[in-house]
Nucleic acid binder design. Structure first.
Lengths: 317, 317
DNA sequence: GACGCTCCTGCTCATCTGAGCGGTTGGCCG
DNA sequence: CGGCCAACCGCTCAGATGAGCAGGAGCGTC
């Protein structure tokens, strides 16, 4: 881009006046041409040069929390339905999660309609979304997975679904069961429970869902933390990179059937994929590989994150 | 202007993306509509709202010395051919004058063509212009008035014309005579001098001129300072407000025939008015009334000034 | 002085764009 | 349940606009 404008001060003043009339006063080029006794072509060329030399500067964006540019780039780059990047520091995980929860809650409030059926995965970010939610179209709310008790004792799995349903005013389909049980037989028995079966029956009608995204590594996925050492190593050998609502993904984004599957209570990859929009709410830059896997799998079609993770996602792959 | 944009984050991200495509990537609204699967009307409305809410901000101007906005406003407000407002502090008169001189020199270099005949009045600002001039079309240069010796001894009147002519490469029409002589007879005699007559003969062909603007008050016009107390009072009674190259003006901008006229050696109001463009280079806010008079008289059709005087001119009358 | 070169200008024509209009939807009240 | 209001949407059509072109001025070279 050329810096200094061509011509002397008179030219400059003229160009600036024309630009003001055009960009700020909204006059047409023809009007301006008449006013300044120029041809409309001349006016067009003056305006072009004003843009090219930087005399006219156009900025897009709010001083607000949402980084609109990153959001747009992310959306384009990965072909997402929605993407919200919150510009917030990532040093305090707690407040970061709250911010993302609030942003995702806003997004839900905006894009969920009465025709939707909302599914909720189980993760701390989903809890944060529920905590921040204030309004929602009257839609049914469906629990997508069992819950694992968290080390910090903040086990709100079922409450999350109920809370959200209370806000929406729609029916709540929830159940009391862990995500991971000790053996396949227990899992089968649980799935037959009326409460569980009732929720599972709703999976096929769910249109929008919110899920967390975990990475197959210590402290980056509650499933990982709940698994045995043996299973951890086995899945790692199988190439598991990410975990989305109990669905395992390779780095390339392929779903992986695993031995763990038959011990888990929750939505399947196929069911997840059938939902029109699945919004992931990941945080922490170290999760970038997992998020990339989730995006590649196209299981996740919406994203609410923070700037550092968004940048990490954009700067490779 | 509405602040916060309508809608939630998704709407916001969409609007920002559309705005980026339109304003920064230069795509047409129709292209954008196809890309985002919207109607072109929807795109137009999104863009409108983006402008209205301040999501898209357009700024005009350089970080440079020239205040383009003030220049344009001044030009419009008073119907000037040219106007250059230099954004420079006005506390140090000397450097202020140098800056204005440089700006006016740039302007001359730009707008003077080989077809022009350049006239120069006598004032410190004109000297400053000459000092800063580096290039000029090959045009004749004509001295418009006699010179008064200044208290500071910096009497460069004749040299100014010669210097400028040297830069332009055209002929110089100058003469050695004061602007104000003790009696009408001396003035008549001087005007008959070949050197003087030769310059005067050029007045009618002068197309562009540079002049200072004086105010009829102590230290604000060299003519005032050179006049007798009696004359000062007499002219003030007559309503003299400004003095432009020895031509007297009322506050309303009417030219005033005065007793002083027949003692002066210089261009007449009619001759001045016949010139296509007369550029005044006034400085110092206290001169605002005189400048306003000069503008109203339409004797002066171009202006090179500093911001504080420009603002003073715009904030009344 | 002839030539080629570049820059600048304004034109034509196909396309793009804005103002205003009417139809539809959804919410709200009588 | 019907009717009203407001918001939103996409259409028409006249007017605005851009891409590309041709003519001409200025300029350096031979």
């Amino acid at each position: 881009m050329a810096r200094d404008p061509a011509g002397g001060p008179a030219q400059l003043v003229l160009t600036a006046s024309v630009a003001r009339r055009y960009y700020l006063d909204g006059r047409s080029k023809i009007e301006i041409a008449e006013e300044f006794a120029l041809s409309r072509f001349k006016v067009a060329r003056l305006l072009e040069s004003a843009r090219a030399t930087g005399l006219v500067r156009i900025e897009i964006g709010y001083p607000g929390e949402v980084d609109l540019e990153l959001s747009g780039l992310l959306q384009e780059r990965f072909g997402l339905c929605h993407s919200v990047v919150v510009d917030t520091p990532d040093d305090d995980i707690g407040s970061l999660r709250r911010r993302l929860g609030a942003a995702a809650a806003d997004l839900l409030g905006e894009i969920v309609t009465a025709e939707d059926v909302l599914g909720l995965g189980w993760s701390r970010s989903v809890s944060a979304v529920a905590a921040a939610l204030t309004e929602l179209a009257p839609t049914p709310v469906v629990q997508l997975t069992g819950a694992l008790s968290r080390p910090d004792g903040d086990d709100g799995s079922v409450d999350v679904v109920r809370d959200v349903a209370r806000i929406s005013g729609g029916p709540a389909y929830f159940f009391h069961a862990p995500l991971l049980v000790p053996d396949p037989a227990t899992a089968r028995a649980l799935r037959r429970q009326p409460e569980v079966a009732r929720a599972f029956a709703q999976f096929r009608s769910v249109t929008k869902a919110v899920v967390g995204i975990g990475r197959w590594a210590p402290n980056q996925s509650t499933v990982y933390d709940a698994a045995t050492d043996r299973e951890r190593r086995a899945l790692r050998r199988q190439g598991v990179c990410a975990e989305v609502s109990g669905v395992f993904l390779t780095e390339a984004g392929d779903t992986l059937p695993t031995a763990l599957a038959e011990r888990m209570i929750g939505v399947s990859a196929a069911q997840l994929r059938a939902m029109r929009e699945v919004i992931g709410v990941p945080y922490d830059v170290v999760k970038a590989p997992a998020v990339r896997a989730a995006l590649r799998s196209r299981l996740v079609s919406g994203l609410v994150t923070h700037t550092s993770l968004a940048r990490a996602l954009l700067t490779e792959g």
